[in-house]
């Protein structure tokens, strides 16, 4: 089996604090894998490591069989041509129109004639159903539309690997379903591999092939959506069913009630 992304014994931290501890993770070619966890558990950091924007302290990150840690800047940029990434809020270039945003990579990396760039760009926009907004500026789009334009832009050069950072955040239920279906469609149509970082369990369970759960920088559970759904692990159960209290306490660790409010409150 060939793996598009392969991470072995990865440690990563900012300063003294370790954010990711001993991560092992594989993403087979052609699959759609989700990395789930609470906000601030290191999911986005993991995604940035795959894109080579951060480099691992220990362990290895391989994309398409190549070790990112040993690459120089030029090699990293060459690798990224094979990678598309969708940022949390789209990160469209605010000074360019929708059309120019999608055409950006074609103009930067290819010497295609303008007429062909136009056709390709409109095809990409059509794939996300937004051919009609080509002349608008990003500020004139709704959140869901901006996200879809950003998807068209991320897939403009038909990347082998697509990374999605929180694609469902801040969307209405209709846009949410549309984005979810698009992620699956784009992945299968392009024959690409996708990694999805999210905390939206219900939506991603519908589309992904495999799920990794990250908590406190460690992978605590993994499996297909069916296995996760049936899982009896307390953490996974709490996460999937959205329970307020569980292995992850509702209360942030702090002084006891008695210490803060005095005896009467402590007893009450």
């Amino acid at each position: 089996m060939i793996h598009q992304v392969e991470i072995r014994d990865l440690n990563f931290g900012y300063g003294d604090q370790l954010v990711l501890k001993g991560i092992n993770l594989t993403v087979p070619k052609g699959s759609l894998v989700a990395i789930m966890g609470l906000s601030g558990c290191g999911k986005t950091t993991l995604l940035r490591l795959m894109g080579g924007q951060l480099l691992a302290r220990q362990g290895s990150v391989r994309v398409a069989g190549q070790e990112l840690n040993h690459m120089n800047e030029a090699q990293l940029y060459a690798m990224r041509r094979q990678v598309g990434m969708l940022f949390q809020f789209g990160a469209l270039f605010t000074d360019l129109s929708v059309f120019d945003n999608v055409a950006f990579q074609m103009r930067e990396h290819t010497r295609l004639p303008e007429s062909m760039i136009r056709d390709l760009t409109l095809m990409k926009l059509n794939a996300v159903g937004l051919r009609g907004v080509q002349s608008l500026m990003p500020a004139e789009l709704s959140g869901g539309m901006a996200r879809r334009v950003a998807m068209a832009r991320a897939t403009a050069l038909d990347p082998a690997l697509i990374l999605y950072d929180e694609p469902f955040t801040g969307l209405d239920p209709i846009s949410l379903g549309a984005i979810g279906r698009l992620i699956r469609q784009l992945n299968d149509a392009l024959g690409a591999t996708s990694v999805l970082v999210t905390h939206d369990v219900q939506e991603s369970m519908k589309i992904v092939d495999y799920i990794y759960f990250v908590s406190d920088g460690v992978i605590v559970a993994q499996g297909t959506p069916e296995e996760i759904h049936a899982s009896t692990l307390p953490f996974v159960h709490q996460f999937v069913w959205g329970e307020a209290d569980g292995p992850l306490p509702f209360h942030y660790p702090g002084p006891t009630l008695k210490m803060d409010f005095g005896d009467e409150w402590g007893q009450a």
Partner: peptide, 11 residues
């Protein structure tokens, strides 16, 4: 994140 996005587009 426009700068990050650009970096990920190999620019």
């Amino acid at each position: 994140e426009q700068l990050s996005a650009m970096e990920m587009m190999a620019v």
